[in-house]
Amino acid sequence: GTEIELESKNGQREHYTATSEDEARKIIEKAVRRGIKRIELRGASEQLIRDMQEIAKQIGLQYRTDGSL
Rank of each mutant, 00 (worst) to 15 (best):
G1N: 13
G1K: 12
E3I: 09
E3R: 08
E5P: 00
E5S: 13
E7Y: 06
E7K: 04
E7H: 11
S8C: 14
K9Q: 13
K9N: 11
K9F: 13
K9V: 11
N10F: 08
N10H: 08
N10W: 08
N10G: 09
G11M: 02
G11P: 00
G11W: 00
Q12H: 10
R13H: 13
E14L: 09
Y16P: 01
Y16M: 06
Y16F: 11
T19R: 11
S20N: 10
E21Y: 13
D22W: 07
D22G: 08
D22I: 12
A24L: 08
A24F: 09
K26P: 00
K26R: 09
K26Q: 11
K26E: 14
I27G: 00
I27T: 01
E29C: 14
E29K: 04
K30C: 12
K30D: 13
A31L: 07
V32R: 02
V32G: 02
R33K: 13
R34P: 05
R34K: 13
G35N: 10
G35A: 04
I36A: 08
I36E: 01
I36W: 01
K37F: 07
R38H: 07
R38A: 07
I39W: 01
I39R: 00
E40P: 00
L41E: 00
L41I: 12
G43D: 05
A44I: 03
A44G: 09
S45E: 02
E46G: 04
E46I: 08
E46T: 08
Q47M: 07
I49Q: 12
R50T: 09
R50F: 06
D51H: 14
Q53C: 12
E54I: 09
I55C: 13
I55H: 03
I55W: 13
A56P: 01
A56E: 03
K57M: 11
K57E: 09
K57S: 07
Q58E: 14
Q58I: 11
I59M: 15
I59E: 15
G60Q: 05
G60N: 11
G60H: 07
L61C: 15
Q62T: 05
Q62E: 15
Y63E: 15
Y63P: 15
Y63R: 14
Y63W: 15
D66Y: 01
D66T: 04
G67N: 04
G67T: 09
G67Q: 05
G67H: 04
S68W: 12
S68T: 09
S68D: 10
